[in-house]
Design a protein around this nucleic acid. Structure first.
Length: 968
RNA sequence: GCGCGCUUAGCUCAGUGGUAGAGCACUUCCUUCACACGGAAGGGGUCGCAGGUUCGAACCCUGCAGCGCGCACCA
């Protein structure tokens, strides 16, 4: 930093240092360095979508991770922050398909076929997939890029297969024909978590059906979906509902489609507890093919299943002539019209209800019966037990916790998410893990229908077992082991499906895959839910199933930083996978960020256009500014209302920091390492104590994951204490002529700055590194202790008792300094009140209450811009009406002969006095209350006495000023 | 319906029992040799409402209201 510029220009600094850190391997974790003295610290990044671009949520999330990682390095830990990306099945496939369509290359992905289409996706991934990684680097993320992973990497894919097969073997993964959430746009099944309930305005249609056995008797049914009437296979009433008991077992004539015969339209009236007789008419149409509850009712009563919807949400021929081919929403209107035309529609009343929407495609999902793969969640009990959902999670004292809080080994921050987590795990349903997509991990199951021909082929190949063994239909839930290839170690897990007479074989062995293909087995066409790969992230990225040095050193990870919106999708499932496959939890702490919103509180979204581009913000204000701005306004567990002003504030802050260091540099000289305790001024002692206090507060805030508090403390210490008071006061020493004093002052400044830059580094990595080198602090340290980079400088510790003793730091010193600053403020207020311009030298007279060394006087003089500052003895008397202020340091006068508006001054002083007296009354009343004085702690009582004395002396001062006013 | 969170200065938010705070915005003054991306001074709040506990409540308890978010098979 030879020629330091007047303002900080991040552009020239950021790329330089990022490059430097990378070429020096500062981000690379080395498991061999881990030891008792150098513990491991690890974080895995929540992998962003490989085709995604950086948004403000990423900024918040990754800034926090970077802060944790950089802080841990400075704490002397071996740090692994493991980065990577996620293949994001539906999102990526949709994006690529849309792009190809837009280019006119295809009309549908079928035009290309699976293989060709996947080639295109990989091309896209190779071209676009690095973007977000590059953006993270701009932000300053200190990830170990040598370990970057992608969920579709070959090794990672093997992990996914292995896990699938393992769970298949245990019988936890099974294929079944069940009701699933079907997205008619993406044309795939979704998990329950991918469905969000939305309020919808629609109609509740009331229509009549005739009871077949009692002509002329009608039942009225209420429904929001009349288009599914053709799929009704029954009508249900509550068995305890007296209105309908006599009709149970009879039939009604289904209203649609009208062209069907009476026989075709007869459906039974069944009794089922699930029917709520408060709702509507208490009669429920049962549509097993298109409603989950109805499906269950249908199962209980042996009702048939009629499917009237195509996968993309259009009506089938089964829906009847009028509806066939219509879109489901058009069909709804049409069905109502037909009912009306036949006189069956009683009324259609406006109705608000909740409808499940596909989170991705933002359209209503269809409950649909289909063959899918499901997972019974593993290691549920352990996963649930490891997080304590009780309110008192933070303080559970061993005495109270009979159940032992040590069994809860994981902490959520904020704690309240533990309850949400616990509730979800307590009400969990099997996970539908198959997706009807092409982009993803293909289900590693091969199947073959056991025709006589196939059996012959199999027996020629099978070496150790007979077909009878393999196809034994009484096989239990778990699969049996067998190798088709005969290669040692190559295993398959076989299950017999009696219904379809097929053999199902799951394997993660390439040899087996080849052998199976030769035998005519066909691989399942579905792929797995993306989360089925990301739930393995903490260990699959570290080389599992091999016991690699990385895995041994860095699993389990320390902290996970993520959004609460994926607590079920990802966090909970990772915990289960961790216990199931590693036998240990995947992380010890989970920090849930808030959600970034705009300043009106709306979620950031592309369609609203309210989502600022972080890269533009970085270009405009600098990465440090962005980091600072967002961290300062991101309190623990609350959503963040983001405003560009926040980043501007960060920019201003960086500039201030830059200039504070520039000021130091302008004083010249080398780094001053030795502080001479005998030459310490009150101001020096004061700032050292404030530094000590700041370090303690920051450490406490980090321990509680309160990052905004860290930021605010740093802000206060640097700006309000160091700059506003200490540096300003130091100018007195620098304009003086005591060289030794100046040198010592510089030593204190260097001490404070070198600590401050370290405290700031996790938050502001770029500017601090630049200043660290520019001020020469790096030259003062061993290479691996901050000499090469601030990244490895040791984290500051609070001052020791020895240091405090040597430097003479005590409460009295602090009070003396604070009182002097207070007097300066009082004097400045006088200036402002009497319109003495700030840049105008003014004559002040100070009548000190006690001893006041010349150096102290000089500071007051400078801070007040007083010239002259006359020191008066106790006999000196001001002219009548001289503005004055006083505190423990003494009385300060601003002589303004003839300039004072006596009337205005009197009323100002009267107002002040009234306020002061009100305070005195408040304290006096408290002190006069025996209940107060007898019960309150001694310390509080003492404080009140002191407060009373302070107010009283202020009152006296104002009173004497009033008395000193000339008669008006 | 159940659960969670929020309600403090014009705005965004800190503040968990002992004198109501910060940043921004606002008003006035100042380009004084680190910084106008700056400095100085100032105005502005019965801490959502109502009870209760306490010597003392923004803070603890109860109830209510408003806003937001989860979860839930009311067609």
């Amino acid at each position: 930093m030879s020629e330091i510029q007047k303002s900080y220009e991040p552009q020239s600094v950021e790329d330089k240092w990022y490059q430097y850190w990378q070429t020096h391997g500062c981000f690379t974790a080395d498991p061999s360095r881990v030891s008792e003295r150098r513990p491991a610290y690890s974080i895995v990044i929540p992998p962003p979508n490989v085709t995604g671009v950086l948004h403000m949520g990423h900024v918040l999330n990754n800034t926090i991770q970077d802060i944790l990682a950089r802080k841990a390095r400075m704490d002397g830990k071996e740090v692994l922050w493991l980065p990577g990306t996620d293949h994001a099945g539906i999102a990526t496939q949709t994006v690529v398909e849309k792009t190809l369509k837009k280019q006119g290359a295809i009309r549908h992905r079928d035009d290309l076929g699976r293989e060709k289409f996947l080639e295109k996706v990989w091309e896209w991934k190779d071209k676009q997939g690095g973007i977000i990684i590059q953006q993270l680097k701009k932000l300053g993320a200190s990830c170990d890029w040598s370990r970057e992973r992608f969920t579709m990497d070959p090794a990672y894919s093997r992990c996914v297969q292995r896990v699938f097969v393992e769970l298949y073997r245990k019988g936890l993964i099974y294929r079944g024909r069940r009701m699933v959430n079907w997205c008619p746009v993406s044309l795939t099944a979704l998990s329950d978590e991918e469905v969000t309930m939305k309020d919808q305005k629609g109609f509740l249609y009331h229509f009549r059906v005739e009871v077949a056995e009692a002509p002329g008797t009608f039942l009225t049914i209420a429904t929001t979906r009349p288009e599914t009437i053709p799929a009704d296979t029954g009508v249900a009433v509550n068995p305890r509902d007296p209105r309908y008991q006599h009709l149970i077992g009879k039939h009604v004539i289904r209203a649609l489609p009208p062209e069907q015969t009476r026989e075709q339209r007869l459906i039974p009236i069944v009794a089922d507890d699930k029917v709520d007789f408060e709702f509507g008419t208490g009669v429920l149409k049962v549509t097993p093919a298109h409603d989950k509850t109805d499906f269950e009712i249908g199962q209980r009563h042996g009702l048939g299943v009629i499917d009237v919807l195509t996968p993309d949400g259009h009506m089938t021929a089964e829906a009847g002539l009028d509806l066939a081919g219509l879109d489901r929403f058009a069909a709804r209107k049409k069905a109502a019209e037909i009912l009306e035309a036949h006189g069956a529609l009683e009324k259609a009343e406006p109705y608000a209800n909740k409808v499940g929407f596909s989170e991705r495609a933002d359209v209503p999902i269809e409950p649909r019966l289909s063959d899918q793969w499901f997972l019974k969640y593993p290691s549920l009990e352990k996963s649930r037990a490891c997080v304590d959902p009780s309110e008192s999670g933070e303080s559970a004292s061993p005495a109270v916790a009979g159940v032992s809080s040590s069994s809860h080994k994981m902490r959520f921050h904020p704690q309240r998410w533990a309850k949400v987590y616990d509730h979800w795990l307590g009400n969990i349903q099997d996970w539908c893990i198959s997706r009807q997509l092409w982009w993803g991990h293909r289900v590693p199951v091969w199947s073959l229908e056991l025709t006589p021909d196939a059996a012959a082929r199999l027996s020629a190949r099978i070496r150790h077992a007979s077909i009878e063994t393999l196809s034994n239909s009484d096989a239990d839930a778990s699969a049996r082991s067998f190798s088709f290839s005969g290669v040692a170690g190559a295993e398959s897990w076989v299950r017999w499906d009696g219904d379809t007479r097929t053999l199902q074989v799951a394997t993660h062995s390439q040899d087996e895959e080849g052998a199976l293909q030769e035998l005519g087995f066909a691989q399942d066409t579905d792929v797995l839910d993306t989360w089925f790969s990301s739930w393995l992230w903490p260990f699959a990225t570290m080389g599992w199933p091999e016991s690699t040095p990385t895995l041994k050193a860095f699993y389990p990870t320390a902290d996970l930083v993520t959004g609460p919106d994926i607590i079920f999708f990802w966090v909970a499932r990772m915990i289960m996978a961790g216990y199931e496959f590693m036998g240990d939890l995947p992380f010890r702490n989970v920090y849930f960020t808030g959600i970034i919103r705009d300043k009106q509180g709306r979620k950031m979204s592309k369609s609203l256009g309210n989502s600022p581009d972080p890269l533009e913000l970085i270009a405009k204000f600098g990465a440090d500014a962005l980091r600072f701005g967002i961290m300062r306004s991101a309190p623990l567990g609350q959503d963040v209302l983001f405003d560009e002003k926040d980043v501007e504030l960060g920019r201003n802050f960086c500039n201030k920091l830059w200039n504070a260091c520039r000021f130091r540099q302008m004083q010249g000289g080398e780094v001053q390492g030795e502080i001479d305790a005998t030459r310490l001024a009150t101001d020096d002692r004061w700032i050292l104590m404030r530094l000590d206090q700041a370090i303690r507060e920051i450490d406490a805030a980090y321990a509680a994951y309160r990052f905004s508090e860290v930021t605010q403390t740093l802000y206060r210490f640097f700006w309000s204490e160091y700059c506003d008071w200490y540096i300003e006061a130091s100018k007195a020493a620098f304009t003086g002529d005591d060289a030794a004093l100046k040198t010592n002052r510089i030593a204190v400044i260097d001490f404070v700055l070198s600590h401050m830059l370290r405290l700031f580094h996790p938050l502001l990595p770029f500017i601090t590194e630049e200043l660290w080198h520019g001020l020469g602090f790096s030259a003062d340290m061993p290479p691996d202790q901050g000499g090469r980079t601030l990244m490895t400088a040791p984290w500051p510790h609070p001052l020791s008792e020895t240091e405090k003793d040597i430097w003479g730091l005590d409460d009295t010193t602090e009070k003396v300094a604070a009182a002097r600053y207070e007097l300066v403020s009082l004097g400045r207020t006088l200036r402002a009140q009497f319109n003495v311009a700030a840049n105008q030298k003014a004559r002040f007279v100070l009548r000190p209450a006690g001893e006041l060394p010349p150096a102290e006087r000089d500071v007051i003089k400078l801070l007040l811009n007083a010239d002259p500052l006359e020191i008066a003895d106790s006999n000196w008397q001001p002219d009548k009406g001289t503005p004055a202020a006083a505190n423990a340091v003494g009385e300060l006068f601003l002589p303004l002969a003839g300039l004072v508006d006596v009337t205005a001054e009197r009323s100002r002083l009267d107002r002040d006095l009234a306020k002061i007296r009100a305070e005195i009354v408040k304290v006096e009343e408290k002190l006069a209350n025996p209940a107060f004085t007898s019960k309150v702690p001694a310390k509080v009582l003492e404080e009140h006495h002191q407060r009373l004395a302070d107010w009283q002396s202020k009152a006296q001062q104002v009173e004497s000023s009033l008395a000193n006013l000339p008669a008006a």
